[in-house]
Amino acid sequence: MLTDKRQLLLDERAFARTLHRMVLDILRQNPDPDRLVLIGIQRRGVELAARLASLLARETGAQVPRGALDITLYRDDFEVVGPRPLVGPTHLPVKLDGREAWIVDDVLFTGRTVRAALDELADFGRPGRIGLAVLVDRGGRELPIQADVVGERVPTAGGDRVEVFVRELDGRDAVEVVRAGRAAP
């Protein structure tokens, strides 16, 4: 009998500590917060970008502008999977040229979402630098893409799922890993 096993990776407190650590990492790589812009990938990347921005404001006093990207129209699997509903708006509040743009997403897996985000950002302008901050890196890359700031690393197998919950959408902050069921030996 195959059963999925659900593990709690980060509880509410660990979640908050992780975000705080990510903010410090971002600042370490990029000491001038006035050039920063955080761009969250729909959906939960947007909420995480908001959290990081407010933490940055507490740390530095700087108001970092935030944008959102829906990468649905830049996916590379349209042929296979077909049209999907767009999950949320795309908007960028400031011009990107010369800025330090950080893409924020909840889970980094194959890297295809980030590739789509990079393509989409290129249509909006030319940042001085693009960084990538993710809450969870679950391995399994299919493209040569790495995050500059990682909240938590967890190795996973193909059938596993990493589920991120944010208070704004799900009522709680947590990260859970669901291991795909394996046959009993």
């Binding site: 980094l108 194959t110 193909g158």
Partner: peptide, 21 residues
């Protein structure tokens, strides 16, 4: 155009389990 240009439904079924992040 977007909704009608859609993908191959058989492949879509097969791809359901595939990665998308």
């Amino acid at each position: 155009l977007y909704l009608l240009a859609g993908g191959n439904p058989e492949l879509a079924e097969a791809a359901k389990g595939a990665s998308d992040r």
